[in-house]
Amino acid sequence: MIRSLTALALAATLAACASTGAPPPSVTARPAPSYTNLGLERVIGQDAAGLSTLFGQPDADVREGTARKLQFVGPICVLDAYLYPQGSGGGEATVTYLDAREPDGSAIDRASCVAALARRNGGK
């Protein structure tokens, strides 16, 4: 009797480990955001003065070495513009990259943020 119970317990344990043959559920990864420069022509390549003309005075101006980050905050979004000197001679720092987010930190299209911030200052 004990052998029967042991064999039955062993069979139940092995049955629990057996595969049903069904494939595991697929995990769909969120696509990486697309970082094109489409719609950013007014900003990429601008110097700090050009950004101030377009958006007004920056809400933050952070410098680290020769790099500079200007931050512009509006009701729709926050835009970080990263300026780096061009060429080996340390020429004028211009925008080479932009990052944008909603005030709560959610993702937002960079071109939409540029357009919204330009409108707040009259789109000069």
Rank of each mutant, 00 (worst) to 15 (best):
A9P: 09
A9G: 07
L70D: 12
S34Y: 12
D59Q: 10
T28D: 02
L14Q: 03
T13I: 06
A11Y: 10
L38P: 02
R30H: 04
Q57M: 13
A11S: 07
Y35V: 01
D47T: 00
S26V: 00
P24L: 12
L38H: 04
T6W: 13
A32I: 01
S19E: 15
R30N: 04
P31T: 00
L70S: 06
D59K: 05
E64R: 11
A67F: 05
L38F: 03
A49F: 14
N37W: 14
A7F: 13
G21E: 07
Q46D: 04
F55M: 06
T66R: 14
S52Y: 11
R42N: 06
T36M: 06
A12N: 05
P25M: 03
G50I: 00
P33C: 04
A7R: 09
A60V: 00
L10H: 08
I44F: 03
E41T: 00
A49G: 14
G56D: 06
A11I: 02
P24F: 06
D61G: 06
A7E: 15
R68H: 15
E64A: 15
A60T: 05
Q46M: 13
L40I: 02
S34A: 09
A48E: 08
A48P: 08
Q46Y: 05
D59V: 05
P23R: 03
S26A: 08
A49H: 13
P25N: 04
A49M: 15
K69H: 04
P33K: 03
A18E: 15
G21K: 02
L51T: 01
A16H: 08
F55C: 07
L51C: 05
V27H: 05
N37G: 05
G45V: 00
A22K: 02
L70Y: 00
N37K: 08
G50S: 09
T20F: 06
V62G: 08
A22S: 03
L40V: 02
V43R: 01
T53D: 13
P58R: 01
T13G: 08
F55N: 10
S34C: 15
C17G: 12
A32Y: 14
T53S: 12
P23E: 12
Q46C: 12
L51M: 09
A9S: 12
A22M: 03
P58Q: 11
G45D: 13
G39S: 04
R42Q: 15
